[in-house]
Amino acid sequence: MSSFVSLGIVLLSGLILASLQAPLASFLLLYHSSFGKNIKKKTKSLASSYVSGVAVMVFLLLATSVFLISALSFSGSLSLVSLVVLFGVLLALSLLSLCFYYKFGRSTELWLPRKVSKFISSRARATSDNSEAFALGMFVTFCDLLFSFPLFILSANAILSLSSPYQVLALAGFTILSCLPLVILRLAIRKGKNLADVQRWRLKNKNFFRFFSGLGFLVLAVFLFAFLVIGDKI
């Protein structure tokens, strides 16, 4: 696998991960709830802790995937059979994210079971400490794992084919890319946007996000098939 193909997979996976909405929705709830009861400084500090929690969890999941692949496979990368399975999973996720990532109706409710989404909402409302916000960020990232797990595995496999200095850069790049929407949202709120503005924007662009992540999974599946499954045979 060439470095360009590996970097392409890492970038595309990072972008798809960034398009998943659970961390963004939870961040919005946390910000809104904290703004209503705390001073601005406290809210900013909670928001920073939350983003750090998400970033650390993404980094840890990716690093764990890298470790697992290098430790469990003989060649230090995924076998052809595993890649074909991943191709199938990505195709299925493409369809799932198009049809089921958002619940139907005029809301931005996600696929998460009602108990989990209620738990996240109640935690976001009750959070008053930096460590709680950090843990919430980690938990929400973990909750989206059904959709993000193949992205971590595929990126980890791509990262393993890079040389050592680039591996660290790719790990950092993936983490930064996946946290970018949270940083942008934070900047938007700092510039005066409130929950109503952001939620209206999310509602208006819900179908675009759905389409983007669905197409992203599909493109990644085709990319994987073309460069790693067929490309490996040629």
């Binding site: 929705a25 709830l29 931005t108 409710e109 909402s121 409130n194 929950l195 109503a196 939620q199 209206r200």
Partner: peptide
């Protein structure tokens, strides 16, 4: 309208 929107959508964000 902002307050009404937030009140009506408070359980529909995630």
């Amino acid at each position: 309208s902002d307050l009404a929107f937030v009140y009506q959508n408070r359980n529909k964000i995630i």
